[in-house]
């Protein structure tokens, strides 16, 4: 009997050790952290900072790009988000985190072209030198960070996906980003503060 217990104990111990997963955890913001502002070049050649938006209550910061099929699939939905929430105090700010040398289609000139083709209603900034996306902890495009202006800075209120159906806009059941901003506007607690979605890895020169 003792032997059996020992075997069971060993077995359990092995299992616990065995399933300890190796993972590389990225640095970056968690919900509740204060996010940094930035000064990045917009497609109209002006420099944009969140501090410029005096009347905003917060921001929907979306790391996105020209080339990722998931980003492309979301373009119309990002425009719709900006149209809906800009006037309510939560404008969209899109940032392309890719190094154009690693991903030619994401050059500043091609960002201008894409923004014009699609009629982007929001700033579309290039993360020159790739200094901003690692601070936020963006890992992919698209990747949403909802920020709220508070007395001590821009507080991260939501990190994740736009909705629950990246590949098919017609099949969306839950609009995570809209739900989060709606909750902020109503002064309510956000139901889901972090969500996951498939996206393209951010392109860094090797």
């Amino acid at each position: 009997m003792k032997k059996l217990q020992l075997i069971l104990l060993l077995f359990t111990a092995t299992l616990i050790f065995a399933f300890t997963t190796n993972t590389i955890v990225g640095e970056g913001y968690k919900v509740g952290d204060i996010a940094t502002d930035f000064s990045l070049k917009n497609i109209d050649d002006s420099m944009v900072s969140m501090a410029d938006f005096k009347d905003a209550k917060g921001f929907i910061v979306i790391f996105t790009c020209n080339t990722c099929p998931y980003s492309i699939a979301y373009e119309d939905r990002i425009i719709a988000l900006d149209k809906k929430y800009k006037n309510l105090g939560y404008p969209v700010i899109a940032i392309n985190p890719n190094d154009p040398e690693a991903q030619k289609g994401d050059s500043f000139d091609l960002m201008k072209v894409r923004a014009k083709e699609k009629g982007f209603t929001f700033p579309y900034l290039l993360d020159v030198g790739q200094k901003i996306y690692p601070q936020y902890g963006a890992t992919k495009t698209p990747h949403v960070f909802i920020l709220q202006k508070e007395s001590d800075g821009l507080r991260v209120k939501y990190i994740g996906a736009i909705d629950d159906s990246s590949r098919n806009a017609d099949a969306v059941k839950t609009k995570y980003t809209e739900n989060a901003v709606d909750a902020l506007l109503a002064g309510k607690t956000i139901n889901e503060t972090t969500t996951k979605a498939i996206g393209c890895s951010i392109k860094v020169k090797s």
Binding site: V25, T139, K140, H143, D164, R167, E192, T195, A197, S201
Partner: peptide
């Protein structure tokens, strides 16, 4: 579809980037 449901089932730490 619903990636938010299945991505964490592959691994809790996966952000969804490929």
């Amino acid at each position: 579809p619903n990636e938010n449901e299945w991505i964490p089932k592959i691994n809790e730490s996966w952000s969804g980037a490929i």
